[in-house]
Simulated assay, not measured.
Amino acid sequence: MKQNVKFKNNELFLAGHLYVPAKFDETKKYPAIVVSHPGGGVKEQAAGLYANKLSELGYITLALDASNQGESEGTPRYLEDPYARTEDVRAAVDYLTTLSYVDTNKIGALGLCAGGGYTVAAAQTERRIKAVATVSMVDIGSLFTEGMGRVVSVEDQIKLLEQVSHQRTEEANGGETYYITYVPQEVDDSMKGTVAEGHEYYVTDRGRHENAPNRLVFTSFNKIATYSAFSHIDKFLTQPFLAIAGSEADTLYFSEEAVKKAASQNKELFIIDGATHVALYDIRANVNPAIEKLDEFFTESLK
C-alpha cells in the first residue's frame, strides 16, 4: 500500500512514498509519521523500510527524499544542506495536513542517522510534531567537522573550511562541481565501525540504490560546519522523545547527549544490545526490536 507523492518545500518539489495501512479506509482518521533518511540515503532504503513496517502497524507514513537528492528537485545534485533538510521535515508535515485521512493532532516524526538529527532540529520549533523518535541518530554538524568522537582540532576544521572556500572560488569562475563520497568506495583493514559498515550498506548489494550514488557536494561543508541539531533542545524539545541506538554503535554518544539535554519530561534512550550503527538500517541485521519499540512509543504518544 505505497504510492508516489510530490509536495513542495518552498520552490522545490520533493518526492515521497506514502504508505497506508492494510484495509485503509479513506473516511477514517489515522496518526501519521514523517520518516527522514540518513545522509547519503534515499527513501527506498532504510527510511522506506521503517515507513513500510510502521504502516503495517496502523500508521500513515511518509518517507521522503531530501532536497537536491533522490527523486526530489534541487541543484546542485547531492548537496547536503542541513538547513534545507530540516525544512524538508516541516514541508512533509505541511503535506500530511492536507490529507483528509490524517489526524493533524497526531503527527509524529522519525529520523535515521543524520535524518534523526534533522528531525530533532525541526521538532524544536515545529509544534505540529507531537512525538519525536530517532534511530542511530547523529548531529551532522559535529560528525562532519569534529569527526567521530570529536577528535578533529579546530585548526584542522578551519583548514577544511579554507579548502571549501577555495573550491567555491573555483566553481564561481567556471570550475566543475567537486564531489566527494559519503562513505569510502573501498575499505581496508584499518577502517572500522560506521565507516566500514557504511561502505557495506551503501556500496554493496546489501543496501545500494541507484538514486543514492555515494556522492556529496564538497562545498556542503560550509553549511554543515555551523549546524547544530541540538542547539535549543534544552528549551524547545518538550514533545515525547525516543532515541534508539545500538550498544556497539560508535555514534551512541549523540543519542545519549540528546536525551540528556532534551526538555521533554517523557524521554527515553532505548539501547539495543549488540547492535551497531548500521545494524539498525535493514532486515539483514533485524530491525524488529526497533520497530516494536517505535510502535510502543508512537502508540502511547499518538494513538
Rank of each mutant, 00 (worst) to 15 (best):
A121H: 06
F218C: 11
A47R: 00
S142T: 13
V187K: 02
K293W: 00
L18H: 02
A229D: 05
A229E: 00
P38M: 13
I291A: 05
F241W: 02
P38Y: 11
R150D: 14
K53Q: 14
F236A: 02
H17N: 07
V42K: 01
Y118E: 09
S100K: 13
Q239I: 01
A290D: 04
G207L: 06
V35Q: 00
K28W: 04
K192D: 07
V187R: 01
Y253G: 11
N211Y: 15
L57S: 09
F221I: 08
A263L: 05
S231W: 14
K6A: 08
N286I: 14
P240Q: 00
R127M: 07
A290P: 07
L280W: 13
E56I: 05
Y201K: 00
S255V: 07
D156Q: 12
H199D: 04
P21N: 08
G198V: 09
E257K: 15
Y59W: 01
I107H: 00
S220M: 05
V20Y: 01
S220Q: 04
V135L: 13
D295A: 12
Y178D: 06
F24G: 10
A92Q: 01
L280T: 12
M191T: 10
K23V: 08
V151M: 04
E257D: 15
L294G: 12
A63F: 07
H232F: 10
H209A: 10
A84K: 10
G198R: 02
D156C: 06
T27P: 08
T86A: 09
A84R: 07
A121I: 00
I244T: 03
V187D: 07
N10L: 15
A22D: 12
R168I: 15
T125S: 14
Y178N: 12
E186D: 10
K130N: 13
Y201F: 15
F144T: 14
T181F: 08
I233K: 01
D156M: 09
A285K: 13
D65Y: 12
Q3C: 06
R128T: 11
L79E: 10
T276P: 13
F297I: 02
S142C: 09
Q163V: 08
P289R: 05
E73A: 13
G16E: 08
A122C: 13
Q45T: 13
E248T: 10
E126G: 03
Q69T: 14
S247H: 09
E11F: 12
G40N: 03
E176H: 11
